[in-house]
Every structure is written in C-alpha cells, then in structure tokens.
Amino acid sequence: MTVLPPLRDPVRRFGSRVIDFDRRIAVMAIVNRTPDSFFDQGATYALDQAVAAGLAAAEAGADWVDIGGAKFAPGPEIPAEEELDRVLPVVEALAAQSDVTISVDTFRASVAAACLRAGAHVVNDTTGLSDPELAAAVAEAPGASLVITHSLAEPRKPYPHPRYDDVVTEVRAFLEERVGRAVAAGVPESALFVDPGHDLNKTTRHSLELTRRLDEIATLGFPVLAAVSNKDFVGETLDLPKAERHDGSIVAATACAMLGARVVRMHDARSAVQAMRMLEGILGFREPILEVHNI
C-alpha cells in the first residue's frame, strides 16, 4: 500500500467548493489568454474561446481552472494593465457561470488583488514571490489561497544553464523559505500550496529528478502542485514535439500523484480527470461508481 506524506491541512474551501486532498487529486485545467502560449499558441487568446475552454474543462470534471495572461518564458514585459485586461474578464465570466475553483497565474500583486475581488480563489505565482507585495495581497483577500512555485529567474528574464548541487534539496529549501515569507505576510499555512516548478530554470535531468523524488517535496506538508503537462522534459525524454506529448504527460502526472502531488496542472482536462479518478480508486481514496462485475 502506498503511504503518502501527510498533509497539515488537507481540507480546503474554494468559494462554495470543498476539496479534501486526503481523498482527491485535483485536476487543474489551463486557460491561457496569451497569443504566444507555450503549448496552444494562442488557441484561447480570444475572450469567448477562453471562457468556453474554462467552462468545458469544468464540465469535463476539472476541479480547478488556471487562467494566465503572460507566459513564464523570457520575452517582452506585459504591462500590468494589459495582463489584467486579459485575465479579469475570464475570471468574472467563470465565477458567474461555474463553482469551479479559479486561479490566476500571475506574479503581480495588483493583478492578483483585482482577480481575487472578481471571484478568483487562488493566486498561482510561478515566480516564487518575486513581487514582495503579492503575499500580502493574498492575505488581505478573505479565503484566498496561494501557490508558491520554485523558479530562479526574474519575471520574463532568461536564466541559462541552471546548476544545482542537489536539485531536490535546493528546491525544497527554497519553497520552505518562501512559505515562511508568505506566513509572515499573513497568509495562513492552511491556504498554501507548493510547486517544485518542473522545467522552470531547470534542465530535463533536473525535472526528472524532481519527479522521482517528489515525495521529498511533499514532506513539507502542503498540497503539491505538479505542472508537468506537455513540458520539454517530457518531450526531451521521449524525443517528441509538443503535439505528441500527451501520453508522457499523463504518466508524469500519475507518477507525481503516486509520490504525493495533490494537484496536477494539465492541458487535456478530460484525460487527466479520468486518469486521476482511476488513480484515486487504486489508492483507496474513492469507491467505484458502478460495481456489477462478478457480483
């Protein structure tokens, strides 16, 4: 029987929705309102397409929809006003039409605060609190949660040739220190998630090492988010282009969940939901929906 690292606060509330991460591996769907997004290359840049994608993911069983207006990769700065114009209408529309958990993928305190007021439940910061005001903005929003991700680069800046003596130990120490910052700013531990940041300022070998030792990140006691979908470490491991990384991504997400991840961030929500619901059954988190075989 798989024994997973215990969580400090497994039961979390997001608006009207409650998720018990001792019994649930949440699927976070991805909606990018960017013309140059890493995987879909602007497929949901138009507002109506972004809203439709979020609602479709919720209908497919996704627990969570993550909305981004500026990709992590290096490039020209996206002004805060433009980023907010991209993500805020999607947050408002989803909050009005669904009870799905909503996060905004941003490192800016101003964008985070506006989206939390509009109905978002979580801020997903892929820059590890690069904005010193972000944690306070989350703390000031009633019931808001925060994902702290390991990365080393300044927002939208390159970070060539990353080096680690022990990537897992260093990522874990970074996350623990940033958790301390968030708590000092007023964010309760019961509102925190951590993400080791697969591929973010890491080589493929670093990301594979993080995956096989994810249980060491999970021992921090916070729900771990594994953002592995279609990433380059999957593509380089299998020598596949982005369009052909689906199966490898499902395996990577499953491996992370088996080692303690409680949220998987995935492009194909329907497939990921089926995979995680099946894994929950195998782990004994849930009962079969239908039980007639050989009964």
Rank of each mutant, 00 (worst) to 15 (best):
R86C: 09
V87Y: 10
V87L: 07
V87G: 11
L88R: 11
L88H: 11
L88G: 12
P89W: 09
P89C: 08
P89L: 08
V90W: 01
V90N: 01
V90T: 09
V90L: 03
V90H: 05
V91C: 07
V91Q: 02
E92I: 03
E92L: 08
E92M: 11
A93S: 15
A93M: 02
A93F: 11
A93P: 08
L94W: 04
L94E: 00
L94V: 00
L94R: 06
L94G: 01
A95C: 03
A95I: 03
A95L: 06
A96C: 02
A96N: 02
Q97P: 06
Q97T: 08
S98Y: 00
S98H: 02
D99G: 01
D99S: 14
V100A: 13
V100I: 11
V100W: 06
V100F: 09
V100D: 00
V100N: 01
T101I: 15
I102F: 14
S103L: 12
S103E: 10
S103R: 07
V104T: 03
V104P: 09
V104C: 11
D105K: 08
D105G: 05
D105P: 01
D105M: 00
D105R: 09
F107N: 06
F107A: 15
F107P: 06
R108Q: 15
R108G: 10
R108P: 04
R108Y: 09
A109T: 13
A109D: 03
A109F: 13
A109R: 12
S110P: 05
S110C: 10
V111W: 05
V111S: 10
A112H: 09
A113M: 14
A113Q: 15
A113H: 09
A114V: 06
A114F: 13
A114S: 02
A114R: 13
A114C: 10
A114Q: 15
C115V: 04
C115N: 13
C115T: 10
C115Y: 07
L116P: 04
L116V: 02
L116T: 04
R117L: 13
R117H: 12
A118F: 05
A118H: 07
A118R: 11
G119D: 12
G119R: 14
A120V: 12
H121R: 06
H121E: 12
H121I: 03
H121D: 15
H121T: 06
